[in-house]
Design a protein around this nucleic acid. Structure first.
Lengths: 129, 129
DNA sequence: GAGGCTGGTTTCCGATCGGATACCGCCCTA
DNA sequence: TAGGGCGGTATCCGATCGGAAACCAGCCTC
């Protein structure tokens, strides 16, 4: 009963470290955790506790909040297990899945230009920021 | 002396109405005005007052703030006229110009799925949000 | 029946966002 | 010399963001 529906590789608990990139990343989807949540769900549905691991440092409150917003906006669905009444699973809607395209494009752009982003930032620091 | 450098079509003063789309748009670049500023600059450099028009409702403070952040992050350069000492012009850096690609992709995705976004939102409202 | 895991909620709080308003020096023109 | 455009700055304020910590019911195991 620890597994979701199918055999699904567990997420890397160190997949995201929100401390590292955040302020320099020029793209945001929704709130702080939304993009990471979407990417965590891209291979299939996940449970609350499965999401908490990879989203390093997220609190229950923030995760709930972010998931509720994604649900409200039609990107994620929430489904409680009915048989056991223990556990909840979150998954992408088609709309949410569609979001992954431009999101990945934005992520890739950021990766490609990471050095330039750092350089620009440091250059600005050095001339008196 | 009202014109920037070359002959450049003036921006439509009604180009953006931040009241309309904002909360449903799942993508953000920087702060509230950043994406609009980048798109205003895509055809060439613009002066402060040229930006204020199309960015309906922006205050001097918010515009300055947003421009300073874009400058700090290396997406925009600020250049004061030296001959007349009157006027300042803002333009995209190559890095900022590169941002337009994924930004446009995100905008287009939003346009394409606009109806679905509205529907999802309303559906959620109707079942007790 | 004590403790642990699951999926949260509640309260509190500091930081940031961003609008409103007032004000500023500089320059040009009338 | 008065007024107006330009490119801001200073101050205040309410709203939102998001972390910390405490707490919760339901279920399972020991």
């Amino acid at each position: 009963m620890t597994k979701p529906l199918a055999e699904l590789a567990p997420l890397d608990p160190e997949m995201f470290d929100p401390v590292c990139p955040s302020p320099l990343v020029p793209f945001r989807v929704g709130d702080k955790w939304a993009a990471m949540i979407l990417r965590c769900l891209q291979d299939g549905s996940r449970r609350f506790s499965e999401l908490k691991g990879p989203l390093r440092g997220v609190t229950s409150k923030s995760l709930t909040q972010s998931l509720r917003r994604l649900e409200r906006d039609g990107f994620v669905t929430r489904k409680a297990y009915e048989d056991t009444k223990l556990g909840v699973e979150y998954s992408l809607t088609p709309l949410g899945r569609g979001l992954l395209g431009p999101l990945d494009a934005a992520c890739e752009w950021t990766r490609e230009h990471w050095d330039e982003l750092i350089d620009a930032h440091e250059a600005h620091m050095n001339k008196g920021g």
